[in-house]
Design a protein around this nucleic acid. Structure first.
Length: 399
DNA sequence: CGAGATTCATGTGAAGTATACCTTTAGGCTTAA
DNA sequence: AAGCCTAAAGGTATACTTCACATGAATCTCGTA
């Protein structure tokens, strides 16, 4: 047993982290640098709720990792602190992007009802029934105000259609004892452009734009968190700057920067290094990318995997860009071999589009004159990953 | 020779189908008094 | 009579198909110089 003690002890000695939690993406710091102005604005917009008056609907944009969610949560937390058990106000937060949780109108409502203490089945009820149930629960709750935060609404609206937002904004007219305010958060800056003007005017009574952080601001954020998260003096010079630079290149995504730092530290730890060095950042960058891709490939449905396999094989064979028609042919043969139903070209086309969205491939529609039109497809995952990916596919497809 | 029409292989949108689940409802059966 | 089970009716979501039309540059056609 003494031996184990020694191992574990040396482990904790070696650990670079004082508090790893702080670098986790869901950590909410008590102070949010460079967002003071925005937080103040959100606060002043939502402040009437403390007096039981309905605040304006608010709409917030900004690209990923600009602190939108964090700021809103910060303000709502503060609000709830002020309210205490006064029961005039209720705030719920829903992330519309979470697959299988809240990415359809039905599911959002279901999730909402669950949070309010009710329950609905995962499927089956007519949507208007779900609305009714939701209204009923709201009416029976003691609060006078309900603030609904919809994170990543753009995703939901893209999938559903904008009239579900309209439904929400109209809900107030059916409620007598309680009022609803919406706070929408969107990553897509052009989100409101393609939206029904009625919804637009009612939803964005107030608007707020979160600009991306620049490299300097990112550095400051990182440094602050690093100070709390790590034991002292284990971050080498230039590491923070490099993290910030990486993330600044990805349109100022602070979340990305923090991930980078955390993974880099994990790598350094595993290597039993006493410092986080610059090379660890590079490794971390690769690892994050790599893990993301592998996860996608591993969990993809069978048909998707067959498609991917076809793409990989063809790319290897051809050494150049390949075309959707070729992929379809290869895929058909593959299906016959594995005894799987063949999907239509139409569907395959959509699947390819999804791969493009996921960033696995890069597809461009081109016209080859008399040879018709196709998608020209290039792989956009690093070469050194392809073999590993193929391995996974062979494994999970049982080839 | 060059402008305009053709053509090909596929992209893409809309609408429909199949499947898997869900609730509600009503009828028939069992159970216990 | 109350309680329980089951099947039917009526909904939703998802993955996919069918149908029909849109694309856009290489190639063909044909009038013209």
């Amino acid at each position: 047993m003494g031996d184990l003690d020694k191992i574990f002890d040396s482990m904790s000695d070696r650990s670079l982290f004082k508090n790893k939690q702080i670098l986790q993406t869901n950590y909410s710091p008590s102070n949010i640098p460079h967002r003071e102005k925005e937080i103040e604005q959100i606060a002043s917009i939502l402040a009437p709720s403390l007096l039981g008056e309905k605040p304006s609907n608010l709409f917030i944009y900004g690209v990923t990792g600009t602190g939108k969610t964090l700021s809103v949560q910060h303000v709502t937390n503060e609000l709830m602190k002020r309210v205490k058990d006064n029961k005039i106000l209720r705030i719920e937060y829903i992330n519309c992007k979470l697959k299988k949780v809240a990415d359809t109108e039905y599911r959002i409502l279901a999730e909402l009802i669950k949070k309010l203490g009710g329950s609905v089945p995962a499927t089956g009820l007519p949507t208007d029934q779900v609305y009714l149930r939701f209204l009923e629960i709201l009416e029976n709750s003691p609060e006078k105000l309900f603030i609904l935060v919809l994170d990543e609404v753009d995703q939901a609206v893209k999938k559903i259609s904008d009239n579900f937002l309209y439904n929400f904004t109209r809900l107030n007219s059916e409620l007598s004892d309680i009022q609803i305010s919406l706070v929408g958060i969107s990553n897509d800056v052009r989100f409101l452009e393609g939206i029904d003007p009625r919804v637009k005017s009612s939803l964005s009574e107030e608007e707020l734009v979160f600009p991306p952080y620049n490299a300097l601001q990112l550095q400051e954020i990182l440094r602050k968190r690093a100070d709390e998260a790590f034991k002292s003096k284990c971050v080498s010079e230039g590491v923070i700057a490099k993290c910030a630079a990486f993330a600044a290149r990805e349109h100022g995504d602070a979340r990305r920067a923090l991930d980078l730092l955390r993974v880099a530290a994990e790598i350094a730890e595993r290597e039993a290094s006493s410092h986080i060095k610059i090379k660890h950042i590079d490794n971390a960058n690769n690892k994050i990318e790599r893990d993301k891709i592998l996860a996608i490939i591993e969990t993809a449905p069978k048909q998707f995997q067959l498609m991917l396999f076809s793409i990989f094989k063809l790319i290897k064979q051809n050494k150049g860009p390949i075309f959707s028609g070729d992929i379809y042919n290869y895929y058909q043969n593959l299906c016959k071999k594995v005894k799987v139903d063949i999907l239509t070209q139409r569907r395959v086309s959509d699947i390819l589009a999804e791969f493009d969205m996921l960033g696995l491939i890069n597809a461009t529609v081109i016209s080859k004159g008399r040879q018709g039109r196709t998608r020209e497809i290039k792989l956009s995952i690093p070469q050194n990953l392809v073999d590993k990916c193929e391995e996974i596919l062979i494994d999970s497809l049982g080839l």
